[in-house]
Nucleic acid binder design. Structure first.
Lengths: 191, 191
DNA sequence: CGGTCTCTTGACGGAGTTCAAAGCTAGTGG
DNA sequence: CCACTAGCTTTGAACTCCGTCAAGAGACCG
C-alpha cells in the first residue's frame, strides 16, 4: 500500500512497521476509470472505500429518474453507504468515479477482523466516524439554514478548488437543485 | 449511575464490575426541567450528554430570529454540538429539555481520559459514532429525496410515538418548515 | 467535422413562506 | 376548582423561490 495511507493513519494513531504490515493485509487496492461504478443500487454493500487519489461521488436515482448526489469523496476520505454496509444489506446508492481514481478497498468482514486484531484501528475509526458525524451535522444545519443560492455561495467560498474540479451539473445535484437554477444564480452575480 | 446506562453499554461491549466502577467516575448526573438549557449559543461546548430519560432537542436561531430544531435526543441517545465539542470552540446551538429529563454529563477532557484509560470505550464510541453517522447520512438522503409533505408522513409513520410526544411546532421546526404548513398538510388528510 | 454532453436563457407553474387574525388548550395562581 | 393568560394551532390571501419544460449555444471527443 502507498505511503500516503500510512501518513494519513499517523495523523490519528501511532503505528510501527509490524502493525502497518498487518494492517495492509486487510486491504486491496483498485483503480477506477471515470464514470465507473464501485457500487450499484440493489447490490449488497460489502466494501468501504478509501480514496488515495481522484474523486468519487455517491448518488441515488429519485422517483423522477434524476441522479441526486449526496456526497463527494476526495483524497483521504472514506466513502460507502454506511447504513447498508453496517447491516450488510442491499443499497439504494451508486458510488461512481468522477475522475480516474485510486482506492483502497476493505470488506466488511475484513474491517471487523481488523478492528478486533489491531486495537489502534478502533481508535482510528472512532476518530474518522466522529469527524464524519460532526461534518454531517453541520451539513444538515446548512441545509436548514441556507437558501439554495446561499448554499452555492457557501460551497463556492469554502471549497473553491472543488468547484473548479467538478462539472456544474454535479455541483447542482450535490447542492440539491437543478443545473438551470445554478446557471441563473451564476448569471446574477456576473451582471 | 443508573443500571440503564450499564445495560446500554453492554449492548456494544463487555465490561466487568471494576471497569464499570471506573467508567462511572468520569460522569456526573443532572436533572433538567422542561425548557431549561444545557447549552447556549456562544458558550464553549464542553459537555457531551447522554439521555437517561426524557427528551432534549438541539436548535439554532436563524437570521430571521426563528428557532430551527436540527436534532432530538431521547432515552439512550447522545447529544452535543459535535463540531464545537471536538474542537472545544464556541457553539451556534442551544440544547434544551423538551420534557423534564435525566442526563449523564461528561466533559471533553474526561471523555479523552476515559478513551485513553478504558480501551473498550474506544470500541463503544466507535459504534456510537458509526451508527450516528449512518443515520445522519440517511437523514440527508431524505432531505434531498422527499418533499416537506413526504417528510412529515415518513416521520409520522416511522416514529408515531414521537409525534404523540412532542408539540407540532417543534415537529415542524425539525422537519424544516413552518407550523402553518404542517397544519395545512394535516387538514388535507383529515378531509 | 459531426454528435453527444454540458451550460444558458426564458416562460410558466406549484410547493411552501409570510403575515395577520381568530380559535383552541393547557398551565398557573388565586 | 375555576378563570385568565400565554402559548399553540388553524385558516386564508398574497407572494417568492425554485422546478419544469423547451429550445438554443458552446464545448469536448472520436
Amino acid at each position: 500500500m502507498p505511503a500516503t495511507f500510512r501518513n494519513h493513519l499517523e495523523k490519528f494513531i501511532e503505528i510501527n512497521d509490524d502493525e502497518y504490515a498487518e494492517i495492509s493485509t486487510y486491504f486491496t487496492q483498485a483503480s477506477v476509470r471515470k464514470k465507473e461504478n464501485l457500487l450499484e443500487e440493489g447490490q449488497i454493500c460489502r466494501s468501504h472505500f478509501f480514496v488515495l487519489s481522484g474523486c468519487l461521488r455517491k448518488f441515488f436515482i429519485n422517483d423522477k429518474g434524476v441522479e441526486q448526489t449526496t456526497e463527494f469523496a476526495i483524497e483521504n476520505w472514506w466513502i460507502t453507504d454506511n447504513m447498508a454496509y453496517e447491516r450488510q444489506q442491499s443499497t439504494g446508492f451508486f458510488i461512481q468515479a468522477v475522475e480516474p481514481s485510486e482506492v483502497l478497498v476493505i470488506s466488511h468482514d475484513a474491517q471487523e477482523a481488523l478492528l478486533r486484531n489491531v486495537p489502534a484501528m478502533e481508535r482510528y475509526f472512532r476518530f474518522v466516524y466522529q469527524r464524519a458525524y460532526a461534518a454531517s451535522q453541520m451539513r444538515i444545519k446548512y441545509l436548514y439554514d441556507y437558501s439554495r443560492e446561499d448554499l452555492y455561495y457557501h460551497f463556492h467560498d469554502h471549497y473553491p478548488e472543488f468547484v473548479q474540479r467538478i462539472p456544474q451539473y454535479l455541483l447542482a445535484s450535490f447542492l440539491g437543485f437543478t443545473p438551470e437554477y445554478l446557471s441563473e444564480i451564476r448569471s446574477k452575480r456576473r451582471s
